[in-house]
Write a protein that binds this DNA or RNA. Structure first.
Length: 415
DNA sequence: TCTGGGGTCCTAGGACCC
DNA sequence: TCTGGGGTCCTAGGACCC
């Protein structure tokens, strides 16, 4: 019954921190953190002290006084991440990249060339170590879920093969939080009914899980606990949305505060959408207040948009509506814009006439024309001379950037 | 001392249509 | 006029992942 384990999950260990230790040998073996105000990544030596990604720098220093902070080499992260994924691609075209440092692969079709899946996994680890100088952990199993868990168990710098005959034995003794889809909230909910391990989860009736977690989540978890994971490797998945956000500290909820930030966010998103000819119909805005409560508001248009200024104006309208509904909230700490319902291969020329049909979306023919032409001109100049060569004057200065734009780009998904 | 930024998917209620 | 049913889309909020 058991087929062969041919799914690989490969995951670079403490990726950003490992790159820094590769670039600067004096950092090897030491607790380091990439970032400053906020920890973007921590080395294993730092993790041993409890330092985690996303943690405020001050808190990290308290946990680990000898922690060394380094500013990131973001271009190197991109280059080395791409190179590691390419190594996997040398064995099979069936590679599904999850993020900059992580990918699934199905090697079923190439074992006759390169040997058993475990051999291929060993070869990948050896090559990434030899050619790039980086540690990478690999899990090998019959399903994506098991391979993913195996690579986590194998870390750091390890290899773990889950034999198809012992899958349930392997799976059921593990804690539920190792499962894909079990986060802090679900973990607590499960603990409240006495479920701590995947084995215990598998013995919980389906109706009980669905009542506790909802239909989809309950069904999914039950399937995974019973080791029924039917997901396949998908080599090319198109993005369904594109967004940008900015934490701005604590600032008064006023026009002169949110307008420049929204314009900057719209600029980043609009540029990406136009570059891939993927305008979108739904614009969603999120405002987080000082008390960390956040409110979203969205609008779906008849025609897709990607023009920076139009996107910014719609976002402004939505933010004003949110603020009007929350008159007691006078301080905002984060602004976000997201565009969804993206079109595929849209002819951007069409955006002009379609946009003009709606006065609000594109007020005035001449102005709309000018905006459209301006975006195209800016895009072209940036293509040749770089992002900072040109931009919106009011945006260039005074935008608080809590993280470098280069770091943001690493997280962007290909549209 | 309340974690940054880019994403995906699901839920539930309501509008609207047949 | 009342009653019933099904489907799609939109919106707001959440959980989760890297």
């Amino acid at each position: 019954m058991a087929t062969t384990a041919t799914i690989l999950h490969a995951d670079l260990d403490a990726f950003y921190a490992s790159v820094e230790q590769l670039l600067d040998p004096s950092l090897r073996g030491k607790p380091i953190a990439v970032g400053g105000g906020v920890v973007l990544a921590a080395s294993y030596e730092a993790k041993a002290f409890g330092v985690r990604g996303g943690m405020p720098g001050r808190q990290a220093r308290e946990l680990c006084p000898q922690l060394i902070f380094v500013s990131g080499h973001f271009r190197e992260y991109q280059r080395l991440g791409d190179a590691a994924i390419k190594v996997i691609g040398d064995f099979t075209p069936l590679v599904e990249r999850i993020s900059i440092d992580e990918a699934f692969a199905d090697v079923a079709g190439c074992t006759h060339l390169f040997g058993a899946p475990a051999e291929i996994a060993r070869a990948i680890r050896q090559r990434v170590r030899a050619e790039l100088g980086l540690p990478i952990s690999v899990g090998v199993a019959r399903t994506k879920h098991l391979a993913k868990i195996a690579s986590q168990v194998a870390k750091p710098d390890g290899l773990m093969v889950v034999d198809p005959d012992t899958e349930l034995k392997f799976l059921h003794r593990l804690p539920v939080e190792l499962m894909w889809g079990v986060g802090p909230v679900t973990k607590v909910r499960l603990a409240e009914i006495g479920v701590l391990t995947i084995g215990q989860l598998s013995k919980t009736p389906g109706w009980s899980l669905e009542r506790l977690l909802g239909h989809a989540a309950g069904e999914k978890l039950a399937a995974l606990a019973w080791n029924r994971d039917r997901r396949e490797i998908k080599a090319h998945r198109r993005a369904r949305s594109a967004g940008a956000q900015s934490a701005i500290g604590r600032k008064p909820a006023e026009e002169q505060v949110f307008r420049p930030t929204l314009l900057h966010l719209a600029d980043r998103i609009g540029t990406r959408l136009r570059a891939k000819s993927r305008p979108g119909r739904t614009v969603t805005v999120r405002v987080r207040f000082a008390n960390l409560n956040s409110v979203t508001r969205s609008v779906t248009l008849d025609a897709p948009i990607s023009a920076t200024v139009i996107l910014a104006e719609i976002a402004e309208d939505l933010v004003r509506a949110i603020l009007a509904e929350h008159p007691d909230e006078r301080t905002i700490s984060l602004l976000a814009i997201s565009v969804s319902h993206l079109e595929e291969n849209w002819d951007l020329e069409l955006e002009l006439p379609l946009g003009l049909q709606d006065e609000r979306r594109c007020p005035g023919t001449k102005i709309g024309m000018a905006r459209w032409a301006a975006d195209r001109a800016v895009d072209k100049i940036r293509d040749r001379f770089g992002w900072d060569a040109i931009g919106y004057g009011s945006v260039a200065l005074g935008i608080s950037r809590s993280v470098p734009d280069e770091f943001r780009e690493l997280a962007e998904k290909d549209l």
